[in-house]
Design a protein around this nucleic acid. Structure first.
Lengths: 201, 201
DNA sequence: CTGGAATGTTAACGACGTCAACATGAGGAA
DNA sequence: TTCCTCATGTTGACGTCGTTAACATTCCAG
């Protein structure tokens, strides 16, 4: 029967495995050879679909940016149609993503600030920022956010949210119990502080 | 003469080289073998001073936490003796460190959230947080910061600052010119927003 | 002065990323 | 159908890496 000399959908299988294992892998943990074996194919098979390891991981990062954009969009959409609530909701969606997939989030950014980052990866990251900038700008137009350079304020906002999503390594350090719940409660409070500052004075 | 069978201060030389090269190294770039060669010693010599590569990098991270604590301390000390100014100054010192050594900062946190992180590494990270928490608490006692769980507020504060220090990968993405200057200006504004929110209402 | 203890070297092993050469199969052209 | 071609997968090899074991050299305490 030789059910499979050709795997059928090797590319997708590799991406799925990489995305899933990225959290469990100790450091870089996942090697080309191990991924190939896990998917039931011989090492170097992946090279028919990806130029090298970096290219594969870049695609994971790109897809993850799209996923995160979608999550923040849904967050905003499911909130009251009012700037502060929308920004809050999409920020919390971002934080939830980060708490659920911390290593993947870290990888997304470490992949993006590499000089060889692909155009599509950069575009995906920029798309996420653009969405956020739209939310901030809308609040300014509505007169409920402070005036000022929208780009700068949006960067500040991203930094706040990204810090909250990224930092909970420290929650573990600070002897907290339930990691996820603690992280979310902290994020709620921090965002409130920031948004109070963002409000027009 | 055999000027050097024994290097003299191999441990320090390795740490210095690793700290210095961490920024230039592409990915993990720096290998045990390459570091040994650069320092003028044969591979495996490092194993007389460090259990393994992770141990060496953990020491770099630990030292960097101490360095960062010292910088934030100096920042606070050189500011007007008033809570907001002190918090602002030490936050900016943190951001400056992050803009100057982005990969090292990233490494510090990736090292710390590893399960095998050494006790001294965790202690160094916690010391930095404790210092920040002291600044926030002082502001609350003085009545100029909003009331609330000091621990939570401090986490929020750290997240803000850490995001600002970490994110400028995006500045590059957002077609900014001078990376460092832009990052610092953004950080100034973002911190102002956050601190306005932190102020007692 | 001398014999460990500290430090450094050489040689080797297995795992890794990647390339080149080869094998297999799917699908269109005759 | 038959055959050809190209996409896909495999095997084998090379150089590099982290790490260990066995050996060499130097320092220092007795």
């Amino acid at each position: 029967m030789s059910s499979s000399y050709h795997h059928g959908d090797l590319k997708a299988a590799l991406l799925a495995y990489a995305r899933e294992q990225m959290e469990h892998a100790g450091f870089d943990g996942l090697s080309m050879r191990e991924m190939a074996k896990a998917v039931g194919v011989s090492h170097t098979a992946a090279y028919r679909h990806f130029a090298d390891k970096q290219a594969l991981l870049d695609v994971v990062a790109t897809d993850s940016f799209s996923e995160l954009l979608e999550l923040t969009r849904q967050g905003a959409a499911s909130a009251p149609a009012e700037p502060r609530s929308r920004l809050h909701a999409s920020g919390m969606a971002y934080v939830r993503f980060g708490l659920g997939a911390p290593r993947r989030l870290a990888h997304m950014f470490s992949a993006m600030d590499a000089p060889q980052a692909s155009a599509s990866l950069r575009a995906a990251g920029f798309g996420l920022f653009a969405f956020l900038e739209g939310l901030v700008g809308a609040g300014q137009v509505a007169g409920v956010f402070r005036a000022g350079d929208t780009h700068q304020l949006s960067r500040a906002c991203w930094a706040m949210v990204h810090g909250l999503a990224t930092l909970p390594s420290l929650a573990r350090l600070a002897h907290s119990g339930t990691e996820l719940e603690t992280g979310l409660r902290s994020a709620e409070e921090a965002l409130a502080v920031f948004l109070d500052g963002l409000a027009r004075m």
